[in-house]
């Protein structure tokens, strides 16, 4: 993959070398690097006892599915190994690769540190993502938190399992009420726009009535309601 240099190609030349970070479809050089040379992914099935925590988010139906495997040191609670598999677009693959590097830096984050990583942190390290890709493709923090909870569950530390302060609205895409709140705050005031930002209900339409209720609620909360369509 090392020969990537799309600068002078005709046709779609420049596809993945755009540096425009505002509304551009295409990706930063860091994203490109992690996409073409992903770090720490697991290119096989995990072996028995190789890891002691597993996390999962998404489904192929909604366009992204991520799995992460952690090896946690039981005394220090530092994450010593972080491996992953991702089905998804370029930015989903790059984001998972990036979060694996972030977690493993400096001898490995502790579980409590790892739990605080936000999608914004990953995006920053990636040198930005196209606006419309951000919410839908950075799911890796959710998969990581799922794995952290799994570790606590496996070690019987049930009191430390963090029930997400927010409520999961769509179990498939793991979109929470907080995600919807943020999307509304960023100006997505219709179901269609919120779906564009969050993927909520894509491939799982049964949750849509609940989503519409929430959009209405947050719209009224922040914008005083009124017709927005």
């Amino acid at each position: 993959m090392g020969n990537h240099s799309s600068k002078s190609k005709p046709g779609t030349g420049g596809d993945v070398s755009s540096h425009d970070k505002t509304q551009s479809w295409f990706y930063s050089d860091i994203v490109k690097d992690h996409f073409f040379n992903p770090r720490n992914f697991l290119d096989r099935e995990p072996e028995e006892g190789e890891f002691n925590a597993v996390g999962k988010v998404g489904s192929p139906a909604c366009g992204d599915e991520l799995r992460v495997w952690l090896l946690v040191d039981s005394s220090s609670e530092q994450i010593k190994s972080f491996r992953w598999k991702t089905f998804g677009c370029g930015s989903a693959i790059a984001a998972t690769s990036m979060i694996s590097e972030m977690v493993l830096e400096n001898g490995g984050m502790t579980l409590s540190e790892a739990r605080t990583i936000k999608p914004q942190d990953v995006m920053e390290r990636l040198g930005g993502l196209p606006a419309r890709k951000f919410h839908c493709s950075v799911l890796c923090d959710k998969a990581l938190r799922d794995a952290v909870n799994d570790y606590y569950r496996r070690t019987g530390q049930f009191d430390r399992i963090a029930v997400e302060a927010t409520r999961i609205i769509d179990p498939v895409s793991r979109v929470t009420d907080r995600d919807i709140e943020e999307a509304v705050l960023e100006g997505a005031q219709t179901l269609e726009l919120v779906q564009q930002k969050t993927k909520v209900g894509i491939g799982n339409p049964s949750v849509l009535p609940a989503v519409e209720e929430l959009i209405k609620f947050y719209r009224e909360k922040y914008f005083g309601g009124g017709p927005q369509e």
């Binding site: 799309s6 089905f87 998804g88 677009c89």
Partner: peptide, 25 residues
Amino acid sequence: DIEGEALLLYLDSKGVYVSTGSACT
């Protein structure tokens, strides 16, 4: 088992330009 946009961009890096029915594009 793979997502169209990812394959499109991998092909692009090899000079092959295609399109996809993937939602991501």
